[in-house]
């Protein structure tokens, strides 16, 4: 079992007065402005809003892929902004999973090897890796195609493999950026069903960025961003 973050409170993510600015030529563009959010463990939350509203920027900050210009991002009470590149990498490796719009599987590796990759970074033994990979593939219903290459499977299957890769290390948080954008309705619902099940049965906290109504249907909490600010925060 993965080393989970010791939690003193139930807030797994705390975003405190976060502003993010990007330089654009001589000036700066403010992508996020004074964001304050608390995400509790086990939430199934979505960031929605039009393009350019700051959804992906906020996900990047939570995923320790970037640091805020102002404010703090706390993952289980620890400020990710002060971590070194190696520490951020370790944080992502141990506690955060990513799901992308375009699956982003490594094409030269088999399905099994793609899912196995995060465990190699954790230096798990071969037996441990095999057990965890097959379990993750079971969760997404793909254990029978473990030896196939990404080019040999459909888009829906590829996204399920990406889900298996994100959960194989049993992370605390999975950040999903537009996970259904490239899928048809049937596959989109199938993916959301799987993610919901993982949330309920494994207690993984999911945070989405999407403007797909099919995703929004499943969300228990919807945070609406507009022009880099929280416009609405609604729990169903």
């Amino acid at each position: 079992m993965q080393n989970h973050i010791n939690m003193n409170t139930n807030n797994i993510i705390e975003i405190q007065n976060v502003t993010k600015r990007f330089p654009v030529g001589e000036t700066e563009f403010t992508a996020l402005s004074n964001i304050n959010l608390k995400i509790q463990k086990g939430e199934f939350t979505g960031l929605i809003g039009p393009s350019g509203s700051g959804k992906t920027t906020l996900l990047n900050l939570i995923g320790a892929l970037d640091i805020p210009s102002e404010g703090e991002i706390l993952i289980s009470g620890k400020n990710v902004a002060v971590k070194s590149d190696a520490e951020s990498a370790l944080l992502r490796n141990e506690h955060i999973g990513f799901i992308f719009q375009s699956y982003n599987l490594l094409p030269v590796y088999s399905i099994f090897e793609n899912v196995e990759f995060p465990l190699l970074l954790q230096k798990k033994s071969k037996a441990e890796r095999k057990e965890a990979v097959m379990q993750a593939l079971d969760w997404v219903g793909l254990s029978d195609i473990a030896n196939k290459k990404p080019s040999q499977i459909s888009g829906g299957q590829a996204q399920r493999v990406a889900i298996a890769r994100s959960i194989v290390k049993k992370p605390d948080i999975v950040l999903a950026d537009e996970p259904t954008a490239n899928l048809d309705s049937t596959n989109a619902y199938k993916i959301m069903d799987i993610l919901k099940k993982l949330n309920e049965e494994l207690g993984i906290t999911f945070m989405f960025s999407s403007h797909d109504s099919k995703v929004i249907e499943y969300l228990r909490r919807v945070i609406t961003l507009e022009d880099g600010k929280v416009k609405n925060d609604e729990t169903k």
């Binding site: 995923g63 892929l65 590149d85 190696a86 951020s88 990498a89 370790l90 944080l91 992502r92 490796n93 141990e94 955060i96 990513f98 992308f100 982003n104 490594l106 990759f117 995060p118 970074l121 890769r165």
Partner: peptide, 16 residues
């Protein structure tokens, strides 16, 4: 670059 981006997201450090 795409492959490196994926590897960074999965948790490999830039140095590695």
């Amino acid at each position: 670059y795409t492959e490196f981006g994926i590897r960074i997201a999965i948790g490999e450090s830039k140095r590695d």
